[in-house]
Amino acid sequence: MIASVSFHRFKALRATSLKLAPFNLIIGANGSGKTSLIQAVLRLRSLARLPLSTEGAKAPRKAGGPSIWFRFTAPHADLEARLECVSDVACDLLQVLPPGSSGWPQLQGEIGRIRSYLLDHYAMAGTAPTAPAGDTVLQGNGGNLGAALLSLSERHPADYAALAAETLRLMPEYTGIELGRAADGAVTLGLVLANNEGVVAADSLSQGSLYLLAILVLAFDPAPPTVLCIEEIDRGVHPRLLREIRDAFYRLSYPQSFGLKRAPVQVIATTHSPYLLDLFRDHPEEVVIAQKHGSASVFERLADRADLAELLKEGSLGDMWYSGILGGVPDEQ
C-alpha cells in the first residue's frame, strides 16, 4: 500500500528515502531509525483520521523543518501525503496532494487500518480484562490475546481451527488451546499439555509460546490490516522456529503463496537476529539496512549491493551483517 517514504530532518532520518516492498525486514544498530520508520507510519495513520479541512497547524513551524513524504501503490499512485512537523519528534500537519483528490477518502480508510505491534509477554500473560463484544483485534502489546482468540473461535471458527492446528504443529507438546471466562467475565487462556498432564495457564507459558500465539493470531486474522508494523519479530523464539515466524508474516504479505484469496498485507518488521536474516538469502529485496553514521541514518536495500552474490559465496547473510560488511552495526569508540 505504501510505495515509499521520504524523510527530511525527522529524528535520525535526516535525508533518506525508502521504497517499501510487500514484506520489509528492517535491520540496523540501535538508534538507527528502525522504530522511527514505524512511528512515521503511525503518525500518518493518526493524522489521516482527522478531516483535512482542519489540518491547520497551531504551532508555528520553521521553514525547512522536519517533514515526511509518503507515496502509495496503485490505485493511489497519484496521491502523496506529506507530514510536517513542529519539532524533530512532533508532526501535526498532514497535506494530501493533489488537494481535493477523489481518491483520498478510500486511501484514508486504508491508512486507518494500519496496525502496529510491540508484543509484551507480561501483558499477554494476564487475563484479558474485557469480554469480546465484536470482532476483537489484537491490541498493540498483545494484551488481549485470550479475548482475541475467543472472538476468533466464536466468530470465525474455520480460521480459529486453522490457527489452533498451526499452534499445535509448532508446539507439539500441547494438544489444545483452552479458552474460558473467569467469574468477572475476563477471558482466560491456557494450552493443554499432551498425555493429560494438565493445562498451562497463560501466566505460566513461556515468553516464546506467547509470542508465537500472538503472531499466529495476526497471521490468521480474517480481517487483517492494510499495513502491519511489528518490532523484534524474532523475540523469544528458538532459532529453529524462525522460519515459521517468517512464513507466518509471508502468509500476510503473499497470501497467494498460501492459497489465500485476499489482499496482501504490507509488513514492516524489525529484528536484531542474524539467524532470521539468514532466511532472506533468496529475497534480499525484502531486507532494509538502517545505516547509522554518527547521529544520522539512511536506509539501504540489501538487494542494491552490487557485491551481494559474491559475499554470499563466503558466508551467510547473518554472518555478513554481524561482521560489519553489510553495515547496520553499532558505532564503536
Partner: peptide, 14 residues
C-alpha cells in the same frame, strides 16, 4: 526451481 516444485518461491514449511 522453487516455482516449478512449489508453485511459489515462498512455500510454507509444511
Amino acid at each position: 526451481l522453487k516455482w516449478r516444485v512449489y508453485g511459489t518461491d515462498r512455500p510454507s514449511l509444511p
